[in-house]
Design a protein around this nucleic acid. Structure first.
Lengths: 155, 155
DNA sequence: ATAATTAAAGTCAGTATTAGTCAAATTAAA
DNA sequence: TTTAATTTGACTAATACTGACTTTAATTAT
């Protein structure tokens, strides 16, 4: 077996303790200790291997009693379609193009009318009015992508 | 597994004795004694978990026979609450406060779980991460207010 | 009545306990 | 050799806990 770097090993370990359960909760420092690495290595593993693309969602809390929770989500059937849309959006999109995307999602029954309206409200020109038009489109893209990625899985 | 800090435990306890009732009245020192912590910890729990954004209003009295009263408020029939929320949002709000507001709206059935999740995705820290932290909060406030307005039209 | 005492709760700043970020250094792969 | 992935650690941020001090209200003493 090749490439047994620590990140791969930690990844395997986390997946093994995930096992059949839907989610795990770990203490970053404990895992780091266990594998004799710096704590931020755990972040690296999570950021590179437990992404939504791979079907994982991660939540965490700092401070006393803090934790990192890794949740395995099941990607929906339309997940790939949405992924393609995300690629189209790239790192900037204007309001009209966004509207088209939302409308098509609505027509595909991937969004209710109410949901569509809420999203439109959030990426609307007035909501995102900046001095700089370019920034507006960047922010809009980020918001849309974040929402689309959220649509790729249920709770 | 999760939430092993005293604050979370006290929060759960208070919510459990709240139960179905609209309000409870506690003695700070008694609760502190019960959980073997300093009295000001109770203030900490209240200030971080029983705020108006969480859907609670707290009243208290000092001196002999003093108490802390926690009241669960209803967003629907209390227009002052909505006003308070808008005030809190103001022209800048951080992610955590926003999250609390969304959760309250969900608990009051003003948002579905899916809608809540989509909104959370759109105002998430990563989504709105800018060079300037201030801008992040400004945009988040605009999005939230835009959404609140949208909700108003719907009814 | 007024003052002193007692019995609450509030505030705030300091400390402790987590996790996150970022970029430089190193290692592996192409 | 160039590029990509990994490793590291110093610095940052968020959350929780504590205790000394303050404020307010009720009760008791004068």
């Amino acid at each position: 077996m090749q490439s047994q770097n620590i990140s791969d090993i930690i990844e395997k370990y986390l997946k093994s303790i995930l096992g059949d359960s839907q989610q795990i909760e770990i203490k970053r420092s404990e895992i780091a200790e266990l594998f004799n690495c710096v704590p931020s290595q755990i972040n690296y593993v999570i950021n590179t291997r437990f992404t939504i693309q791979n079907g994982y969602v991660v939540k965490s809390k700092r401070g006393g009693g803090g934790y990192i929770r890794i949740v395995k989500v099941n990607l929906l059937d339309d997940s790939d379609v949405i992924k393609d849309l995300v690629n189209i959006i790239g790192d900037g999109i204007d309001f009209n193009k966004s509207l088209q995307i939302i409308q098509s999602l609505f027509q595909e029954d991937l969004l209710t009318r109410r949901e569509s309206n809420l999203i439109i409200a959030s990426i609307d020109k007035r909501t995102l009015a900046f001095e700089d038009r370019q920034i507006e489109n960047i922010v809009r893209a980020r918001i849309l992508i974040s929402i689309l990625n959220r649509l790729r899985y249920d709770d």
